[in-house]
Nucleic acid binder design. Structure first.
Lengths: 120, 120
DNA sequence: TACTCGCCTGGAGTGGCTCCAGATCAAGCG
DNA sequence: CGCTTGATCTGGAGCCACTCCAGGCGAGTA
């Protein structure tokens, strides 16, 4: 799969994928005879995961650590599991922030409605 | 209220508050005789809103626009309302991303469990 | 008086992209 | 066969949203 396809499947931009590769967040990506990157199914799956972790706020440093664990094989599985569990917990925090903001917006919109009903 | 208190109430850092002021995201903040910022209740309320909008992904540019509307008085209320409604919709998108990530993590964790049950 | 504490300002540094110039190569066309 | 188009490549500059730091000021305390 070409980089543009990998980009549209993962939701990352082409530039971001190249940047992630430079930053050590990806497993080695093969190259075709033309020198262009060729993404395997496994590569794309990994990109999708990275995209989702990043989109939900995991810093690159943590992702890099997770990628290193991945490269080190199956003996790191319990540690990787812990990283994902930690992130799952982080998602809860994020959800709470969304809920909080939603209710704040509702209150503000309510106030605006009042002001409009009783114009100066 | 001093800046450190405003920071702990709003959840923004002291530096970020100063940065927001420079960036035109805040209404004029008064100063005491000592030259230090003094935050009114309304100021703090605004900081809380800015904090929540920013935390849920609104870019500074949009926040600046909203702040300008706020400074322009009540005749901008319908436009401000629209900004908040748009953002409320944006929250839904964010929520979907969290859900998506959560189910992805669940699947990955399931796979790890399988691998651990049947070690090499 | 000396020390600490919180605040001030301007500016440098950081994380995470995003954009750009200039080069290469394969495919399609007249 | 040469020419154009389009996708990719690399290295590096630029940008957004902070974050940190040096150097300085004024109020309160020992």
């Amino acid at each position: 799969m070409r980089i543009s396809e990998a980009a549209s499947v993962s939701g990352l931009s082409v530039d971001t994928i190249r940047f992630y590769e430079k930053s050590g967040l990806l497993p080695p990506i093969g190259r075709g005879l033309d020198g262009n990157r060729k993404f395997s199914a496994e590569n794309v799956d990994w990109l999708v995961l990275m995209s989702s972790l990043r989109e939900t706020g995991m810093p690159l440093e943590k992702m890099r650590h997770f990628a290193e664990l991945y490269r080190s094989g199956n003996r790191t599985i319990s540690e990787r599991k812990q990283v994902l569990l930690d992130h799952a917990e982080h998602l809860e925090t994020k959800r709470a922030a969304l809920d909080h903001c939603a209710s704040l917006l509702e209150r503000k919109l309510g106030l605006y409605a009042e002001i409009e009903e009783v114009p100066a």
